Simulated assay, not measured.
Amino acid sequence: IIIVDRETFGILDVNATALGCYGYSKDEFLKMSFADLGTKFDQEVLEGLETISSNQSEFYSRKLYRKKDRTSFYVNLHVSAVMFMGRDCLIVVTPDVSESVEKETQLIQASKMATLGTMASGIAHEISQPLNVIQVASDFLAKTVKQNAEINRDDVYTAAGQIGKNVQRAAQTIKHMKDFVRKSDVKGDKIDINDPIRDIFKILGQQLKVHGIGVDLDLAEDLPPVFADHNRLEQVFMNLVTNARDALDENGQRGEKDSKMLRISSFLEDGLVVVTVSDNGTGMTEDVKDKVFEPFFTTKKPGEGTGLGMSISYGIVAGYNGTITVDSEAERGTTFRLTFPAAS
């Protein structure tokens, strides 16, 4: 527990737990500003501390703070405005949540690897297609040289161009895969919400075509940025799209005649950046809808799903002060709605 002067943000008092957690002596604490404990200037927290009203409380999730020995760790901030010894003060409780953050990161990594396993055929196509073009172009060049045929400069230039273009395409696919599986950043940054949406189709685009699923992207341009991690949001949209694919496939197996459609929209509404992911698949019963964000809940057959994808997605979105809700009706389809505050 840390007691902070409301006007100067100077530290007025701390309890024994804070001394042990941060490693400073009480005298050292009393010479510091509360802002000195953070790893960097946090505009969101500063503005919240300045505007919090009397007898009001605020909560800030997973902020990176630093101990005296310069070790960084994650804390949740619970802030309350009170009077202390006749002064307008803030009581700040900073429990260490580093262990839970690390466990969440491990779950996200496990979910990514499970996703890659199911996407293997689509990834193979994305790499084999440019390799086929390279093979044809190189065979043409080798055959021309072997037969001592007259070399047409335009033909050679075209073949070389195709080789270079498809090497770049394969390299970009591989790079994107490496970026996707890397350990993502909890802290995040200002990003365009449309970027992770577009990026998932670098992996899933071909697979959705093979499954006969039409894709309608209606992404608003010039949206304000949101504060999140690109890699983590890509995992969220990957989970939503793969679930939609499975629901659409199940509808196809039941002989539904409507074309299978996946629609993703992004737009600004009441100052929030909103994304909707909709499909006209099997939909959910009320019972399934009530449990969809619970850990280990799945409607898939044993061995086909971990039941972690949606609970992980919920945690990721909530960690960036966002919301995710579901609207679904059995046999009619499903829409997930995500909202994020615009980054200042």
Rank of each mutant, 00 (worst) to 15 (best):
I2Q: 01
I2R: 04
I3Q: 01
I3D: 07
D5I: 07
D5N: 14
R6C: 02
I11S: 08
V14T: 14
G23S: 14
S25C: 07
K26V: 06
K26L: 09
D27I: 10
F34Y: 14
F34A: 14
D36G: 08
G48H: 02
L49Y: 06
L49N: 07
I52N: 01
Q56N: 13
Y60W: 04
L64Q: 07
Y65L: 13
K67H: 12
K68E: 15
V75H: 06
V79L: 03
C89L: 04
I91P: 01
V93A: 12
V93K: 09
T94K: 01
E99G: 00
E102F: 03
E104M: 07
E104F: 03
L107V: 02
Q109P: 00
S111D: 12
G117W: 02
I123G: 06
P130M: 04
V133A: 11
I134D: 13
A137T: 08
F140L: 13
L141D: 11
K143R: 15
N148H: 07
R153G: 12
D155V: 06
A160H: 05
N166T: 06
Q168A: 14
R169H: 09
K175P: 01
V181L: 14
K187C: 00
K187I: 12
K187R: 12
D189F: 04
K190L: 03
K190Y: 03
I191F: 08
I193E: 02
D195F: 04
R198G: 04
K202T: 12
G214M: 10
V215S: 07
L219W: 03
E221M: 03
L223W: 03
P224T: 08
V226F: 03
E234I: 02
M238L: 05
L240V: 12
R245T: 09
A247P: 01
A247L: 05
L248D: 12
E250K: 14
N251S: 15
R254M: 11
G255E: 11
L262K: 05
L262G: 12
L262T: 08
L262D: 09
D270R: 06
G271K: 08
V273K: 04
N280K: 04
M284I: 01
M284Q: 13
V288P: 00
T298W: 00
T306I: 00
G307S: 04
G319M: 02
N321Q: 10
T323G: 04
I324T: 08
T325F: 01
R332E: 15
T334L: 05
T335A: 10
F336R: 03
F340M: 08
A342Q: 10
